[in-house]
């Protein structure tokens, strides 16, 4: 474990807690893409299949359970909670995310570390996580100005993978035979997708104005 990875995991955890706070405090999920949340639930379930087979550490197991639990709870909340689900505007959350699932799965069938069930699903989860934010970014652009908690949620979600890139650079430099090319390349793509969001986030922060994404 290194500081970059720990910072990344904590930033990821904060992003999920901010989202839970927003939904719980405002009893509303307006501005949140259910499709992105469903993609994240798939990412965590597909990636953490080794939860019961490979014990890495208490920290690793606890964090996996938290990520799976929170992502499923958020999807449940947005689909079934009698108050929250009425605030979900499905007519603006129209990204065809099943194509993302299919595309990432096909890519994982061809590009993976080892052709085993667990490794192919792991690669699938890495590719899917890289593009999972797209429905949310599209929804942000469509819905113009959104509430602050949603903006913070997307910001922390983008920042966590940037920390992971520093972690991979650090591990590559300090550990012999460390090569996580699939995760590193996908992580770069994932962080790049946030680039314009980060730019407009910084501009809005500098001008102390609300975030305005160009439509």
């Amino acid at each position: 474990m290194n500081i970059f990875r720990f910072a990344g995991d904590m930033t990821h955890l904060i992003s999920i807690l901010v989202l839970l706070l927003k939904i719980y405090a405002t009893k509303s999920c307006s501005g949140i893409s259910l499709k992105t949340q469903e993609l994240y639930a798939i990412v965590f379930v597909a990636r953490y299949l080794d939860l019961f087979t490979d014990f890495i550490s208490v920290y690793n197991t606890v964090m996996k359970l938290v990520f799976i639990g929170c992502s499923l709870a958020i999807v449940w909340c947005m689909r079934l909670h009698r108050v929250v689900r009425r605030t979900y505007n499905k007519d603006v959350d129209t990204f065809r995310h099943y194509f993302l699932v299919l595309g990432c799965f096909l890519l994982a069938l061809f590009v993976h570390e080892k052709f085993t069930f667990q490794e192919v699903l792991w690669a699938f989860s890495i590719y899917l996580e890289a593009v999972a934010i797209l429905p949310q970014l599209v929804l942000l652009q469509r819905s113009g100005n959104v509430d602050n908690l949603t903006v913070q949620y997307v910001f922390f979600l983008g920042a966590y993978r940037a920390f992971y890139i520093l972690n991979w650079i650090y591990r590559y430099l300090t550990e012999p035979h460390f090569g996580r090319w699939i995760a590193s390349v996908a992580g770069l793509v994932q962080t790049a997708l946030y680039a314009d969001f980060f730019y407009y986030y910084f501009i809005s922060w500098k001008n102390n104005a609300k975030l305005q994404l160009p439509a």
Binding site: R5, D50, I56, A183
Partner: peptide, 10 residues
């Protein structure tokens, strides 16, 4: 061939 190292990252 050797098993890829366990995924110790989240």
């Amino acid at each position: 061939c050797l098993q890829p190292p366990p995924k110790d990252e989240l």
